[in-house]
C-alpha cells in the first residue's frame, strides 16, 4: 500500500488516488505552429525513468485536486508531494 501525503488533505492511502502519469510532460504552446513530432512527444512518448519520477496523481476520493508526487519507481518510496501549480526545484 502506498501512502501519499496530499498537500491539501494530509496522509491518505493510495486507494483514494488515481494516477495521471509523468508530470514533466509539457503541452505544446497554443498560438504557434506545432510539429507532428512535438505532438507525438506530448501525447505518446515517455521517458519512464527508473528511480526518481515526478508524476501526477488525482485525489479522486478526497479533495479531487490534482497533485504532483515525487516517487521512486524502483522502490515505491515517496519523497515529496506538491500542489499541481507548485514549481518543483
Amino acid at each position: 500500500m502506498l501512502y501519499i501525503n496530499c498537500p491539501h488533505c494530509g496522509m491518505r492511502s493510495q486507494n483514494e488516488f488515481s494516477y495521471g502519469g509523468d508530470a514533466s510532460v509539457k503541452r505544446p504552446e497554443l498560438n504557434k505552429e506545432v510539429s507532428d513530432q512535438e505532438w507525438d512527444d506530448f501525447v505518446y512518448n515517455r521517458k519512464s525513468l527508473r528511480g526518481k519520477h515526478l508524476e501526477l496523481w488525482q485525489h479522486i476520493s478526497g479533495c479531487r485536486q490534482w497533485i504532483k508526487v515525487e516517487r521512486d519507481t524502483a522502490t515505491h518510496e515517496i519523497f515529496r508531494t506538491f500542489k499541481a501549480d507548485e514549481e518543483v526545484a
Partner: peptide
C-alpha cells in the same frame, strides 16, 4: 497496479 514501476513486486489494493 496502475503507476510506473520497475519493482517486480506488487501492492495489495
Amino acid at each position: 497496479d496502475g503507476y510506473n514501476s520497475y519493482a517486480q513486486r506488487g501492492n495489495l489494493p
